[in-house]
Design a protein around this nucleic acid. Sequence first.
DNA 1: GTTCGTCTTTAATCGTCTCG
DNA 2: CGAGACGATTAAAGACGAAC
Length: 342
Amino acid sequence: MQLRRAGAGTALIDPVPFGGDLSPLAPALADAEWVLHAANQDLPCLAEAGLVPGKLFDTELAGRLAGLPRVGLGPMVEQLLGLSLEKGHGAADWSRRPLPEDWLVYAALDVEVLVELRDVLTRMLAEQGKLEWALQEFEAVRTAPPPAPRAEPWRRTSGIHRIRKPAALAIVRALWEARDALAAERDIAPGRVLPDSAIIDAAANPPASPQALAAMPVFRGRAQRRLTSYWWAAIEKARRLDPAELPAASTPGDGPPPVSRWVDRDPAAAARLAAARAALSRIGSEHNVPVENLLLPDLLRRLCWSPPEDGDVAGYLRRGGAREWQIELLTDVLTQALAARP
DNA sequence: GTTCGTCTTTAATCGTCTCG
DNA sequence: CGAGACGATTAAAGACGAAC
């Protein structure tokens, strides 16, 4: 983790020896405004380590609101500060120790520029009359609850669409969970324990015996041969489940259907969405803000699919987590758009 | 009454882009 | 590498009707 504070210089902290608990740092950071880039990606992690900001500035979000075309840290620093950052070691293995010197330098340089970037962005936002918008956005990010864990993460196994029957899905689930447990125990990525494709193969053509399993691609590999009985036990467990315990063929899906289907399913809703999108796109270009930052696309879809019966668009947006600046800016045009007819 | 084949419906991918 | 967004596409289940 990289820290920089005016007057105190830059510090790099390896969280590993602390067992992931960085809460001793919290008092030192309590009174400061945290300047992060794409904070929504790091905050859940930091919160887990015991670090929660009291005030936040997100340079990526600020860049979007300021209407910058490229909001990566590198491009923004280049455009606004005239500096060029070295290309990252994005896909590098940051778990190795000791970390090479040049990686440390690269990591430190990342934060050297953040405070200066904040100052420039603050000035831009103020000039555009968007500083208050940004403050509301930062506060929303700061106080956002951690993302809910996926209810059924095994359903994201790559190739799952090939599996439809509950009995076969049960095998996917069993193998996925067995793999996850083994990966956690060995502390390596699940995909390196057993590829998704092997799970799907085994579910699509369930082997009748351990021997048949051990003859399948991937499973006949040198490393997998030692685990045949482990995988076989998972498959057997799935086979023994009561019908009531089998996973549902498809998740209910609590939101609206895919937009491409709206015209057939509910032409009126499609007309509302088209009108709302047109209005948002107009306001977006008027204020030089990306449409997806004007309103969460998912909230817009839900609004258009099933508008509030009492016509209280502002209340609907507020309950959906929209910020006050968004409500103020959009309620009228969205109310009009909801009156659109096919 | 059952089986087979085709059509419709549905949803989850694909490919693309951008980001860290 | 993995994430989210997007539009287009594709795969598979279910519905329906015809044929035996």
